[in-house]
Nucleic acid binder design. Structure first.
Lengths: 197, 197
DNA sequence: GTCTATATTTGGATAGAC
DNA sequence: GTCTATCCAAATATAGAC
């Protein structure tokens, strides 16, 4: 007979393996590109053979979806949720901006999976897309709302300029940080423009 | 005996075929992704078999390089060279910004090839990279220099925010133009900040 | 749950006839 | 310059033994 304890243990073990695979996938993706690694390579890295991976992910796109989801979970942990908080000072906003810059540039492949469309045919599942929206809401929308900014155009302006600094760093000089000071300046520019903080 | 005329004719014919292949490659790339089309598909589209393509491009990466080069030539034709011109008015700058936005968003795959790094292992040749730099110089550096802006940080700020608007449009809602009005606003923001025009 | 073996497809690229 | 035929490598995914 199967005890509940055994089921739990089995589930936990399964989830742990899943996690290990996802992390190995990130490592491989950083080296070979997000679409450039194979399931054979991935299996080898976790000490399995390729077919065993199908116990954890039904298709390669399902793996991508788990990575996408994982990326947004990481971002969520890295930034400070702004929901129900007092408005940030200008310096605190810059601090969050630098954290975002560092998060994105430290792993360009992760940034691409999360914010660009690097894999033809892959789209995040509804669940993962919902998490992405949730993170955006908790961090950006809330932060701006706390400053009194709620109209979509201004929110987009903020998203555009901050992501612009990040994506230029990654496109023109990945691995470096020479665009990092520009994040502060871009945020100054924005805040001067909207006349708050 | 081969006449010079014949050589010219042959060369022109060769270049015409090359051009036809590049254009077919763009069409395919728009549908299948930049790395998602095969040389077999490409050959079929121009009425050839795959091996014949090797008369025109030694490898697939050479084809990508030709496309990269072609993209920057197209951009060069689309924008107005600013070298030796009088400073633009604010409205004229916005006009150029909108042209850039339209150019980039009308073909996201082209934008990706030109400005992101969508193909692991592909880097533009020295010649193509030089063209890219030349275009950037003739358009952006010159335009800003005519306004008295010459320091690198401010130039980068301009590049960051304008590319940011474009890349958000492509990432979040490709095919649409709902971020287009933000290009004007971003340029206002920038010009207010640097206090010119 | 993991394996071996393999099906199946597809890719880039080359040899050599015409 | 274009073709047919083919090489070779690699990919995702499945079947079925253990």
């Amino acid at each position: 007979m199967l005890e509940t304890q055994d089921l739990d243990r089995r589930t936990r073990r399964h989830l742990r393996s899943r996690r290990e695979i996802i992390e190995a996938a990130w490592e491989l993706a950083r080296g070979e590109g997000i679409a450039g690694f194979s399931l054979r390579q991935l299996a080898a890295r976790v000490g399995m053979k390729a077919p065993s991976l199908y116990q954890y992910f039904a298709t390669k796109n399902d793996l991508y979806d788990a990575m996408f989801h994982d990326g947004y979970q990481q971002l969520q942990e890295r930034l400070t949720s702004q929901e129900g908080l007092a408005p940030l000072t200008r310096e605190e906003i810059k601090e969050e901006g630098r954290k975002f810059f560092d998060f994105c540039t430290e792993d360009p492949v992760r940034y691409a999976l999360m914010c660009e469309r690097p894999i033809p045919g892959f789209e995040p599942s509804a669940q993962s897309a919902a998490l992405a929206e949730e993170v955006l809401h908790a961090q950006v929308y809330s932060m701006l709302a706390n400053l009194g900014i709620r109209d979509q155009e201004t929110i987009r302006l903020f998203l555009g300029i901050t992501n612009g600094i990040v994506s230029q760093q990654i496109a023109l000089n990945p691995g470096a940080q020479d665009w990092r000071p520009l994040m502060d300046r871009a945020i100054d520019l924005f805040l001067d423009h909207v006349e708050v903080a």
